[in-house]
Every structure is written in C-alpha cells, then in structure tokens.
C-alpha cells in the first residue's frame, strides 16, 4: 500500500517535471515559429486608475490601439496615488490618471513629460430617497455640501487618497468646510465598497458615473446632485520621463498618448458605454 502510493507520487512528480520541461521548450521555440509573422508586439506598461478598467473602457479601446501600434499593453489598475507612485518609481512606461494637481506635480518634479488631456467623466452625489439634507436637484454641489454639513447628514468618504477622494476633498475645501464628526465616515476603500457602505448607512456619497451606472441596480441610493461644474473629472495621460529612467519605453508611451488623443481614439472614447447604459461614460476632450 505504502509502496504503491509512493510510486504514484514519484510518477506524479515526474509528470510535472516533464510537463514543465516541455512548456519551457515550447516557449523557447516560439520565436522561431513566428519568423514569418509580423514582429512580436512590444510590451507597454500602463498604470491607471481602477475606474478606467472597471468601467470596461480599456477593454474596449486597447485592442484597437494594440493593433494600430503593434504594442501589447499591460494594465496595472490601482488608485491614482499608487499609479503616480509607480510612475515616480519608473515601474511603468505611462500613466493614465485623474487628479489634476497631483499630475501637475508629477510633471513639475520631472517624473513625467508632455501631459495631455484625454477625456473627462463626471461625478454625482447620490443619497437615499429620504434625503435628510434636502439636496435633491440642487444645481451647485458646493451648496449641497454646505447643507449636508449643516444637517450633519451621514456622508461616506472614500478616504483613500484616490482621484475620487481628492475630488471630494477639493469640493469641501472650496466650500470652506472641514468635514469632521460622526456624520463624516471615512472608509478607506474602493468605489464599489464605498457605494455598498453608503447604501447600508443610507448616507450620501460622491461617486463617478461609470461606477454608479454599473452598480446602481444592486443598491437603493439615487442621484441627488449632478452636472455641477465642480463635479467634472478630467483624465490626463503622461509618459514617464526617459531622462529620469532610461529603461522606460518612451516611444511606446508617446505612441499611446498620441493614439488616445487622436481622432480615432477620441471617437472610440465618446461612443463607449452608449450601447449598454444609453449614455457615454466618458467625454473626450483632447485639444
């Protein structure tokens, strides 16, 4: 019995070994086989925010770029803060983020060059139908925030230094309010989790339209404030400075930035989401 199981083990290990060797060979042979096909696509590392990936925008536009430019894009979807850190560390070739102030600092500090506007999406304030702060339909988000603070109505904040979080903090600042107290709930989580918690607590929260449209059917919160100029959220693309990091693929990064801002790229961004949600999730705004 013991012998038999030992034998099985040995055979099993041998098979794993052989398979790994074969897999190794296959990989090594790959370049030879592709000799008469077009040259292998180069890899381009893109750090971007979760919103672009979660919304499905990247899945929609990247295959087209890859075909046009013969690049294979590796997407690393993280928060804006982390995406910028990755650019500063030279871990990626290009970043696509939405936090104007942090982006400008990134360029100023010499980590990135040639920032371009790509598109914007917009945020909205959602809340329960009970609307304790009475802000439904308010056109000016600053007035809405003042009402929330005055009524001490529960407000869930991302609190994670993400682009959305920075946007929200910016609005509080512009409204000259320092949000503090039990009503102001900083959860330090992603947009989806924040939405879920706000729903559970019947609280207000600031959310990007893409996430809202994707998840709204799961929860009860409804749009309260939208369309206010302060709720717009511009995205920028920035190649990492090759003078800072010689190993980055600046050529590829520039190709990506140019493609995104090209007529074709802009058109694709503008039509994304219309089929599914009846409205575009991002508005192209390259100059």
């Amino acid at each position: 019995m013991f012998k038999k199981s030992k034998l099985t083990l040995i055979i099993g290990l041998l098979m794993i070994f052989m398979m790994s060797v074969l897999a190794g060979c296959a990989q090594e042979e790959a370049p030879d086989q592709s000799a008469d096909q077009p040259p292998a696509a180069k890899e381009l590392k893109l750090a971007t925010t979760t919103s672009t990936e979660d919304s499905g925008l990247l899945d929609y536009i990247l295959p087209e770029f890859e075909k046009d430019a013969n690049y294979k894009v590796q997407v690393i979807a993280v928060g804006t803060g982390q995406a910028i850190e990755m650019g500063e560390a030279g871990d990626v070739d290009v970043i696509l983020v939405h936090s104007r102030a942090a982006e400008d600092k990134f360029v100023e500090d010499g980590f990135g060059v040639d920032r371009r506007d790509v598109m914007y999406n917009d945020y909205l304030i959602i809340g329960s139908t009970e609307d304790p702060a009475g802000i439904k339909g308010e056109a000016d988000v600053l007035k809405a925030f003042v009402a929330i603070q005055e009524k001490q109505a529960p407000f869930v904040s991302r609190g994670d230094n993400s682009g959305t979080d920075k946007k929200e903090k910016g609005i509080w600042k512009k409204a000259e309010i320092t949000p503090e107290g039990d009503w102001y709930i900083e959860v330090g989580q992603g947009m989806g989790d924040t939405f879920r918690m706000a729903d559970e607590k019947k609280a207000y929260t600031l959310i990007d339209r893409a996430t809202y449209l994707a998840l709204k059917d799961n929860y009860q919160l409804e749009p309260m404030v939208e369309g206010s100029p302060d709720l717009l959220n511009p995205y920028g693309v920035i190649p990492v400075n090759p003078e800072k990091y010689a190993h980055v693929d600046f050529e590829g990064a520039t190709a990506f930035a140019e493609w995104l801002t090209s007529e074709k790229g802009q058109q694709m961004i503008g039509e994304f989401g219309v089929d599914e949600y009846g409205q575009a999730l991002f508005v192209p705004d390259a100059k």
Binding site: V78, G79, G81, Q82, A83, I84, E85, M86, G159, D160, N161, S162, G188, Q189, G190
Partner: peptide, 13 residues
C-alpha cells in the same frame, strides 16, 4: 491590517 491595505492602495508603501 485594514490600515496596511489602505496605505498600500494609496502607494504609501
């Protein structure tokens, strides 16, 4: 532990 996750997500390694 949740602070570690948060700081990591914010890039404050």
């Amino acid at each position: 532990t949740t602070s570690i996750v948060l700081e990591t997500r914010m890039g404050n390694f």
